[in-house]
Design a protein around this nucleic acid. Structure first.
Lengths: 333, 333
DNA sequence: CGCCAACGATAGAGCGCTCCCAATAATGAA
DNA sequence: TTCATTATTGGGAGCGCTCTATCGTTGGCG
């Protein structure tokens, strides 16, 4: 069967195109009786409005984009992105939008694809994960009038964003370790050109400072959030005999634990380990992981909500939202 | 600046709408000189065609959907879906399409959202992960004329699909274990109402049969592919003292190992373990995991390719594609 | 009984693009 | 030189929807 149009449905229901349109868009001023008649025809015929025509006429598409810039696609084994996508999907569903996904593998790809995406009017708005403050793609999008919300601190003025409280979380990790008597606390961080990398380091340093201790350079090592990078970073730290380590991701924390075990030491007796993420892997690891749980899925949903508000045409600027993280105490510290 | 239209660009270049359209769509019969002039204007102005208008006129959207039915969203911690999405994204990029993601959390949601998706003409085609043969959503889509490719054996006639060779992989696992002298091989499977669950069990049984051994019922246990379900399943098997276990996912294999360790036994000395997936977690586990590596990302890309062929209007039906899996021998067996 | 308001429903005019056909220019053959 | 033929180009007609201005009805009220 050929696809039905509004006009067809109208003919079947004995009303005009416009009336059917009103029924579909739930506008008032349709007599209940007429509305019922039209709705009956719609459900009988299984009519569904043509998305393209609707977008063309209304200038809205009901589609939002989730952009994950190039430098993270390797990290895709990280449950973080899976959860984030899940959260965004959830949020999108709530506002009856569909989600399109843009993963980039190189900056070149970003340059190539983004105009097509940004300028084509295909998207009502876009959410960009801001792993690197000042990311060029985001900067470019910010100059257009495409509604934009960042996930993570974007480092660009005027871009609304939602982030988790990395700083407070890391601060809490430091306090926790010091309060439990650990003296030589080491740090395994993420890349410093990411906002999470920066913030967690800063928070940890602040937290230690609160207890009048510092974070010497030789007790700092950096990875890329992955297990193996945590393992390698721990190798460096071992030379400087820490009695505790805070890793900026669960993955790195587990890598660190593996390295500690390989050195014949025990966790937490010889070295305590605290992670950051709160993923399920930490529940079943040996020992189970003390970690800071961040609400990843909620972050995604909230970003969509913020975008929705912007799309709704609110004029006052939206202030950033920073979600709390929570210390989950398990066996590793 | 207001958004430019074809007409505007034409005016700037001194040609008509139609000519600009031809240039953009790379059609022949435009004088090179004119083409250059138009292209100059386009790049100067940053003009990008309006996606909705284009779709409306051409009846193609350049959008494909990836549908993940309800019953798997819990399993989202599983790297499988992350990789699959990555592969599909890659494939989509290759054919200059954008990817939209549909995750469902309940069958009700499927029923509710799917008409909007399927009938609105918003998608050129759709890829559905077929975790359960005969899934109702897929069955419904199959009756429409929306081009469809399944990932995994769909259990519906005439639906083209791409799958990994679960059967051969499990067969290989059985052979491997028997050849290495293991006598009492246990099995930890996925849900039997999934095609992977079915196929891996069948292949394993066949493989054992090749060595004149059977798979008694008390050496079978089932989980949902997750780590914890593997742990629980292993608890059941332990009562029947297997000397080897084949788990239908890496996650369950790791859970099984944890359970074995908790029982004070060693892997592989007391009980050997073989997984299925080939994810990176198995590289760093203790002991590292012998497993069957499946090409997840390639599966996704290939599905897109198949869809593309269908969209290209080939008339001959497309035959299913089954990708090989490979045994990676590490330390656990 | 007539007038006006309020409501309900309709038709017209696009949205920006593709597709098709007609018009024009350019080319070559006779 | 002229006419047929081909290579380019332009314009019209929609694609199916939304939005706005308009028209017809009904009902309340003086």
């Amino acid at each position: 069967m050929a696809r039905l149009t509004l006009e067809d449905v109208g003919a079947l229901a004995g009303v005009s195109r416009s009336t059917v349109s009103r029924v579909i868009n739930n506008e008032s001023s349709v007599r209940p009786e007429v509305r019922a008649r039209v709705e009956a025809v719609i459900s009988q015929t299984g009519y569904a409005p043509n998305a393209a025509a609707r977008s063309l006429a209304s200038n809205r598409t009901g589609v939002i984009g989730l952009v994950i810039p190039s430098h993270v696609s390797n990290l895709f084994e990280d449950p973080y992105f899976a959860r984030l996508i899940q959260g965004v999907t959830l949020g999108a569903k709530q506002i009856s939008s569909t989600l399109t996904l843009f993963l980039f593998e190189s900056e070149e790809e970003e340059r190539e694809v983004s105009p097509r995406v940004v300028e084509s009017g295909f998207l009502d708005g876009v959410i960009v994960t801001a792993t690197r403050p000042g990311n060029s793609l985001m900067r470019k999008i910010a100059t257009t009038d495409l509604p934009l919300v960042a996930i993570g601190r974007p480092g660009i003025d005027g871009v609304p964003y939602v982030d988790v409280d990395n700083r407070a979380g890391a601060f809490q990790a430091a306090s926790f370790l010091r309060e439990n008597g650990y003296e030589r606390c080491g740090y395994i961080g993420g890349p410093l050109n990411t906002s999470t990398g920066e913030d967690r380091l800063a928070g940890f340093i602040d937290g230690l400072a609160e207890f009048d201790s510092a974070l010497p350079n030789d007790l700092r090592a950096f990875g890329d959030f992955s297990e193996t990078s945590g393992y390698d970073a721990m190798s460096e730290l071992l030379d400087h005999s820490p009695d505790a380590v805070f890793a900026a991701s669960d993955g790195m924390a587990l890598g660190a634990i593996r390295r500690i075990h390989d050195a014949g030491l025990s966790v937490p007796d010889d070295i305590a380990v605290v992670g950051f993420d709160g993923f399920t892997v930490g529940e079943t690891s040996e020992p189970s992981l003390t970690t800071l749980e961040q609400p990843v899925s909620a972050t995604g949903s909230l970003a969509v909500e913020m975008l929705h508000e912007i799309l709704g045409g609110r004029s006052t600027p939206i202030s950033p939202s920073v979600l709390p993280v929570e210390l989950i105490r398990r066996a590793s510290a």
